[in-house]
């Protein structure tokens, strides 16, 4: 298969994984978290025990797929080293833009796997912990989820701008 088609396929897999990741991130932040308070206590387990664990499964694995396909794509296109150095060792502003996007994505992936997921396991009762630890874990998960929502806006700007460079 020729190089351009391979690059296209890796980018397509990267974008489709990223849509699932950020789509679920925004579901948590714009739909689930703000509305939990409006759900009667006896109905909360429908979210906490069924919907949230399923959403978290696709969320964390989509994050993993996005970063793996993204790193493969950057390697395949030959700009991974320059991009991770933010274009300061060559490549110019387009490389700086994709590099800033990559670093924001890497930080977000780290937050998903090493902060949000461990905290959610405690908050949703997948791991038995004491009530105060559970409440603290729920707050940590929410704050890091919000941080990722905040980062998703400039991250996507950087990623899309690098693909549509006109200046």
């Amino acid at each position: 298969m020729d190089a351009e088609l391979m690059a296209f396929l890796w980018r397509w897999l990267h974008v489709i994984s990223g849509v699932m990741w950020i789509g679920l991130l925004w579901y948590f932040n714009f739909v689930q978290i703000p509305n939990m308070g409006k759900i009667p206590d006896d109905q909360k387990p429908a979210i906490g025990k069924v919907i949230a664990p399923a959403a978290l499964f696709w969320f964390r694995w989509a994050a993993m797929a996005t970063i793996v396909t993204g790193l493969i794509l950057a390697t395949y296109n030959g700009y991974i080293a320059e991009a991770l150095a933010l274009g300061l060792n060559g490549g110019g502003a387009q490389t700086t833009a994709i590099g800033l996007g990559m670093w924001m994505g890497i930080i977000m992936w780290f937050n998903v796997w090493f902060v949000i997921w461990p905290a959610q396991k405690k908050a949703l009762g997948m791991v038995e912990v004491e009530a105060d630890v559970k409440a603290a874990a729920a707050r940590t998960a929410m704050l890091f989820s919000r941080t990722n929502t905040m980062l998703s806006i400039p991250m996507l700007f950087a990623m899309v701008s690098a693909q549509n460079w006109t200046y």
Binding site: N29, F30, I33, P34, L86, G87, L88, G92, A93, T96, A97, L100, M142, L143, R146, T147, T149, M150, L151, S152, I153, P154, F157, A158, S161, Y167
Partner: peptide
């Protein structure tokens, strides 16, 4: 004091401010 990230609208505003910072950084390097 309440963490600013606890407000969803503030989170979105901070996200857009980061876009402006990003444009300035990239333009400066360009």
């Amino acid at each position: 004091m309440k963490n600013p990230l606890e407000s969803l609208s503030l989170t979105v505003i901070i996200g857009f401010v980061l876009v402006i910072v990003l444009v300035v950084v990239v333009q400066a390097i360009n």
